[in-house]
Measured scan of single mutants.
Amino acid sequence: MLEGKVKWSNSEKGFGFIEVEGQDDVFVHFSAIQGEGFKTLEEGQAVSFEIVEGNRGPQAANVTKEA
């Protein structure tokens, strides 16, 4: 699992980007967020995730919010 911080997200469009130190930003779709209820990410929020190869390149999977 990698750790990063949410660079920005748009809940209306359903995606955002995660900033990882020393690496390119990672695309995240809201379907990759683990948990119940409305899935949102806040700018600056710490997250853990895996990287998978998506249709348009690397993207985050199994995203969990850190406490």
Rank of each mutant, 00 (worst) to 15 (best):
K13D: 04
G37Y: 07
R56T: 07
E66N: 14
S11L: 14
G22R: 03
Q34N: 13
L2S: 06
A32S: 10
T64N: 10
L41Q: 01
T40P: 05
E19I: 08
D24H: 10
F30H: 08
G14K: 12
V28M: 07
N62G: 05
K65Q: 09
F30L: 07
G14W: 09
K5V: 13
V52T: 08
G35F: 06
E53M: 15
V47L: 05
V63G: 01
S31D: 08
I51A: 02
K13I: 06
E53R: 08
V6S: 00
A60W: 01
G16S: 03
G44P: 00
P58E: 03
E19C: 13
K7E: 02
K5W: 10
G35E: 08
G35M: 08
E50D: 09
M1K: 15
G37W: 08
Q59W: 04
E21L: 12
F30R: 06
I18A: 01
V20W: 08
M1D: 03
F49I: 02
F49P: 02
I51Q: 04
E42T: 12
V28F: 15
T40H: 11
R56E: 06
F15R: 00
I33H: 02
V52L: 07
F30D: 05
V28G: 04
A61S: 09
A32W: 06
T40K: 09
F38W: 12
G14S: 11
V63D: 00
Q23G: 11
S48N: 09
M1Y: 11
E43H: 12
K39I: 10
S31G: 09
V26N: 00
E36N: 11
A46P: 09
G16A: 13
E3W: 14
G35C: 10
Q34H: 09
E12P: 06
N55R: 15
F27S: 01
A67H: 12
S9G: 06
K39Q: 14
E12L: 12
K65I: 15
V28W: 15
T40N: 09
T64R: 15
S48R: 15
F27W: 06
M1T: 12
E3N: 15
R56I: 07
I33T: 04
V26G: 00
Q34R: 09
R56W: 15
E43C: 15
K13R: 11
V26A: 00
S9D: 02
S11G: 09
K7Q: 01
G37D: 10
I18Y: 01
G4V: 03
P58D: 04
D24M: 12
W8R: 04
V28C: 06
V6Y: 00
A60D: 01
K7V: 05
I18N: 00
E66Q: 15
Q45D: 15
F38P: 15
Q59P: 04
A60F: 03
Q59R: 12
I51Y: 04
G54E: 04
I33A: 05
V63P: 01
N10I: 05
G4M: 02
F17M: 06
A46K: 15
E66D: 11
I18C: 02
D25V: 04
E53H: 13
E19R: 11
L2G: 03
Q59L: 06
E42N: 10
F49N: 01
S11H: 14
Q23F: 13
A32V: 08
T40F: 13
Q23R: 14
N62F: 08
G35D: 09
V28N: 03
W8N: 03
D25N: 06
I18F: 02
V47W: 00
W8D: 02
H29M: 06
D24N: 13
N62A: 05
K5E: 04
P58W: 08
E19M: 12
T40E: 09
F17L: 04
F27L: 05
P58H: 07
G54T: 13
A67M: 12
K13S: 07
F27H: 02
E42W: 12
F15M: 03
D24R: 13
K39T: 09
V63L: 07
S9L: 15
S9W: 15
A67Y: 11
I18V: 04
V6M: 06
H29D: 08
E36Q: 11
N55C: 15
E3G: 09
H29S: 07
K65R: 11
G4C: 05
S48M: 12
S31P: 05
E3S: 14
E53C: 15
E12H: 10
A60G: 03
E36H: 11
T40I: 10
V63C: 03
Q34W: 08
G4H: 00
N10L: 06
E12M: 11
D25I: 05
F17V: 04
G54W: 04
K39N: 11
R56M: 09
T40C: 15
E53F: 14
D24A: 14
G44T: 03
D25G: 03
M1F: 13
Q34P: 05
N10A: 05
